[in-house]
Structure formats: structure tokens, C-alpha cells
Design a protein around this nucleic acid. Structure first.
Lengths: 160, 160
DNA sequence: CGCGATGTTCAGAGAATTCTGAACACTCTG
DNA sequence: CAGAGTGTTCAGAATTCTCTGAACATCGCG
């Protein structure tokens, strides 16, 4: 029992490391995976501080990043003065949707360059490819994630 | 003329900044955008060093990252002992394809967790959603980018 | 309304990353 | 095969990022 628990913790930390390498900061990633892997219903900042051995400020900062990103949510807990957090269903799909913002920024950057470059230059040619590609991706990604959401919701309803 | 040139440089630097914020290191991003925005056919490390005011080591490191990532290519230049680099057509699509690797890693991480978690726990439920989502995305992304490549190639052939 | 419990902020310590530049290695050329 | 020209490596400097922890703010309860 203890061993399994430890192995879960381990898997959580390993995923946190992966996320870190992908650009997320360490504390934030660890808070995220702790909430993903916990067997408690919710976790309080104190729980997180104790389990992860990070400072209160660290937990606060992590939560501040994870909430607006849609990874976690604050759960009302009557009778407790502490904040209770929970990993959010649909978080991964939400993350992917936020990538669309990136696609939009890249499209905009290409457009900006195109406004300056001579129409028939090689630079303009390259920028057109860039713009067209990101435009295409943005268009395709939205319905893709939407379709996932529908499928997932449908299955959930079916199971329960 | 000088002004337009400067504005192009500006757009290049601005995109570099965006890429930096997305996790790319500064020199690498600047080399990338310099090659994207240049009106020369190719650029040598010396060109890049001069234009960007970075050290030779910096250029070397940037190239070392950009080449395997498919962003740039070395162009044979008979009669010149310098390396000649050029922004690669299809670079953005290639970048997106590399994201598939990320999707695969995330799927694997979820599977690893699932191997440890009790089948009917809330943790297992969350990990299944994660695994299913990333599996779905990986499946969908491949044909999506493939379709872009086909469309783009077709259009190119048509134009020329 | 005051107090205890909890959350947030932020200056500065510490860690990690990135860049520089000089030494070194390689490759043509005469 | 010597030497000039060019690219690469890497130790250490410089910069940037992240975390800590103590001060402060906020909230709920008696």
C-alpha cells in the first residue's frame, strides 16, 4: 500500500519534470501533478505545501497561474476556511484551445511582416507560407477540439 | 528604402521576441527571424554575427538547434568556404509535426500513471481522460498537417 | 470589532540558463 | 604540408528566472 502510494507520487513527479522541460515552471508543474494524482477529493494550499515541500508563496504563485489557465478550480468547501482546489475536468482540452491564441499571434506576426515586404520578394513568399499555414491550423484546431469535447461529454453521459 | 529595410528588421526582431516568450532562446530566435526576413538568398555566420551583434559561439549554437529542428538548411555554395544558410520551406509545418512527439510523451505519461492507479479511483478517471485526449489529438494532428502539405505543394506546382 | 487563521505580495537570495570570446579543430588552397 | 580562413567548443561572466519567507492583507467567527 505504501509502495503503491509512493509509486503514484513518483509518476506525478515524473510528469512534473516533463512539463517543466516543456516550459512550465517547476513549482507550478508540481502543484498541477499533485492535484492530478491525489486521491483526496480536493487539496488545500497547506496540503500542497506539506506534500511538495514548497513555500506558501510558491503555492500561491502556482495557483495563480493554474486557475486562469483552466487546469484547476477552487471548490467551495463550507465549514472550512481554507481554499480547496481540484484538478479540472477538460483541462487538457482547454490547454489545447489556448494554443489557438499562439496560432493567432503567429498569423498576426506574419501579416505584419507582409505589410512591409515587397509583394514579390522571397521574404514575402516565406511570410505568405507562414501566414497561410497558421491560418489553416487555427481554422482546423477549433472544430477538432470541439469535436473532442462533444465526444467526451457524450461518453460521460452514457457511462453515468 | 533605408526606412523600409529598418521596418523589416523591426518586424523580424519583434517576431523573435514573441518566439522567445514562447520558450525559444534569444539568439536562436534572432537567427531564425533574420533568415526569415533577409532579402539575401542565403546568409553566412559572419552575416548573422554582424547583423545581430552576437558572438560566433552564439551563432554556432543557434544553427545547431535550428538545423535538426528543420527550420533552416545549409546550402552548398561552391567557391565559398563559408557555410550558407537559408530558411527552409515547410519549416512551420515541420515544427507542428514535432509537436506530435509532445503528444506522444503526454500519452505515455498518462499510461504510466494508469499502470499504478486503482482502476476505479478518481485519479485513474482523470488519467484516462488525459490519455484519451492526447491519443485523440495525436491521431488527428498527423493527417491535418499532411493535408496542409499536400495542399501547399499542389498550389505551388500550380503557380509555377 | 478584534483576533486567529489563512492567503498574497514582493524584495532579495539562489539557481538555472544563456551568451561571450578565446582556444582549439578542421578544411581548403597555393 | 604550411597557413589563412572559418566553424566549434567550453569555462566562466552575465543575465534571467524562480523560489523563499517575512510582512502585510483579508476573511470569518465569537
Amino acid at each position: 500500500m505504501e509502495t503503491q502510494h509512493a509509486r503514484l507520487r513518483n509518476a506525478a513527479e515524473k510528469l512534473a519534470l516533463t512539463l517543466t522541460q516543456g516550459g512550465m515552471q517547476k513549482s507550478t508543474a508540481r502543484v498541477l501533478t499533485a492535484l492530478l494524482y491525489t486521491e483526496q477529493d480536493t487539496m488545500t494550499p497547506a496540503d500542497l505545501r506539506e506534500q511538495l515541500q514548497i513555500s506558501s508563496g510558491g503555492v500561491s504563485a502556482a495557483v495563480k497561474q493554474l486557475m486562469p489557465a483552466g487546469f484547476i478550480e477552487r471548490v467551495p468547501a463550507p465549514g472550512s476556511r481554507r481554499d480547496h482546489y481540484r484538478f479540472r475536468s477538460g483541462a487538457w482540452a482547454g490547454l489545447m484551445s489556448q494554443q489557438n491564441e499562439v496560432l493567432r499571434v503567429m498569423t498576426a506576426a506574419a501579416d505584419e511582416g507582409l505589410a512591409e515586404a515587397p509583394q514579390d520578394s522571397a521574404t514575402a513568399e516565406r511570410l505568405r507560407e507562414m501566414r497561410d499555414f497558421y491560418t489553416y491550423m487555427a481554422e482546423q484546431m477549433v472544430p477538432l477540439v470541439e469535436r473532442w469535447r462533444e465526444q467526451y461529454e457524450a461518453r460521460r453521459r452514457h457511462v453515468s
